[in-house]
Design a protein around this nucleic acid. Sequence first.
RNA 1: GCGCCUGUAGCUCAGCUGGAUAGAGCAACGGACUUCUAAUCCGUAGGUCGCAGGUUCGAGUCCUGCCAGGCGCGCCA
Length: 555
Amino acid sequence: MKTLLKEMILDAASAAHKEGILPSPDFSEVVLEEPKADSHGDLSTNMAMQMAKTQRMAPRKIADALIDHLDDKKGIIMRTEIAGPGFINFFIRPAAWHPVLAVIHEKDHQYGRCDLGKGARIQIEFVSSNPTGPLHVGHGRGGAVGDSTANILSFCGFDVQKEYYINDSGRQIQTLGRSVYLRGKELLGETVDFPDTCYQGEYIRDLAGELLEKDGPEIFSEAEAQAIMPCARFAADKIIDGMRADLVDFGVTFDRWFSEQGLYDSGKVAEDIRHFEEKGLIYEKDGALWFRTSDYGDEKDRVVVRRNGQTTYFASDITYHKDKFERGFNKVIDVWGADHHGYIPRMKAAVQASGYDRDRFGVLLVQLVNLLRAGRPVAMSTRAGEFVTLADVVKEVGRDAARFIFLTRHYDSALDFDLDLAKRKTNDNPVYYVQYVHARIASIHRKAATDGLDVGDFVQSDLSALETPEDVVLIKALARYPEAVKTAGTFMEPHRITYYLMTLAAAFHTYYNRHRVLCEDNLKLTRARLYLITAVQTVIRNGLALLGVSAPDSM
RNA sequence: GCGCCUGUAGCUCAGCUGGAUAGAGCAACGGACUUCUAAUCCGUAGGUCGCAGGUUCGAGUCCUGCCAGGCGCGCCA
């Protein structure tokens, strides 16, 4: 509808220009929007005001000219008006919206798809939690945002790859090994001094127990230096398996799990450091090696090899991101927790120094999650190893509720996640509000079948019966879906889909309460309404799929 | 101190990258189930868009300066 009207307006502008009424052929882009107030019509444009400068005419005069030259071949416009400083308001004939329904039925699962990405290869890396403990709620949000964004981008014509970066190298992994080693000694009856710096969680003891059972006690009697790495490998592998399983339960899968250690094993990190040294981008100072990130917008240079000879996390990250681009991705997106935001300038610098456009690398900074129960904060201490894990949350509230709630806010603002509210099967829980639409419609279909109502061939149904205000509101909402997807893809903001679905759901529930779909005495009306609500069901299902939330047939 | 993010109804948040009279949900109050699922709907009430300037036909949206909150400023990850 919008594109159709846009073309009509542009044609009108050209026609008016040809007749010399509009002096300039330079037409600003037509922006059509849906006015908030119904009295302003179905669609409205501010074009006359935008053009006032280039045309050097009063906006209302331009608006007059445009309206005079409108050629409404299909008869979609009921009437137009010029309002306020120069808005042109279009009132669309109710029946003109009906073709939207046919499009939805025809495209079905593909309705809403667009070609924004034009096949560009994009990689999105998310969660990427260190394999030193279970995933917690914050990772859940990152997972939901990353996975849903990937779905949306894919639906918008990007070739998307989802990746998990495993930080299986460095000091944390050693700490993990040491923690397991010491707990293992405890299990064998030794009294050990378990330092604060080690991981305190109960799961460490469990891992030590598993290792003991698998390989016997020998490893725990070896010297610490000998035992740490085997312990660490065992524990990290177990933890990664656990994370993978938790993510599957959460509906999140990855195309690739990428090992940081692999970058060291293959010598790529060392190779890159050498390479950047030769180019003069890495230099030595105070016994350490520094990367000249400040040449590329960072506030100071950063260490890549410490005085003790160990590389920093940043070193492998440079190689990792360079590797991503070498793999041919046009665009590389990382999803990070907001506490890492200080890291962005140096990462951008590294990308640029590696020879790639810094704008091809982007970061979605996901703000923190406040976990609540009945409105009160749930005490969590990562240090003490006491926290509610993602698996706990999924088990308690379910995958659908968890995913949906993580996506009810822009990722950029902090999120309150109330466990009690997420379980509540009422109105204040938006998940069910949306899913209920799908279930209700499925129920109507069942009823229609039971009652032997011949729903016939939908496409042949006469839609002229769909002309009440509620019909139009609902169809207009459906027509808006492709745009919602496109906007969500453009800005990588999955919450826009969530909000869209809530709005559509509201329109449907209103409709449902006002109009009976199955009217035994009016088959024509019944068919038309079934045609309409089936389209609603399709869009709800498609939208929920982008969020990774199921669309149940009954609740 | 510097940087990033946030500030919109009592609470939690949207606001389509500058449009008309700023919108939802919750909470409050009043209504609607012999009906295709009441996990729903309808109505009422609720606002100095943190504050002050600026840009222009027009600002919640853009710019500057303040105020408040969160986070970050390691040879940690």
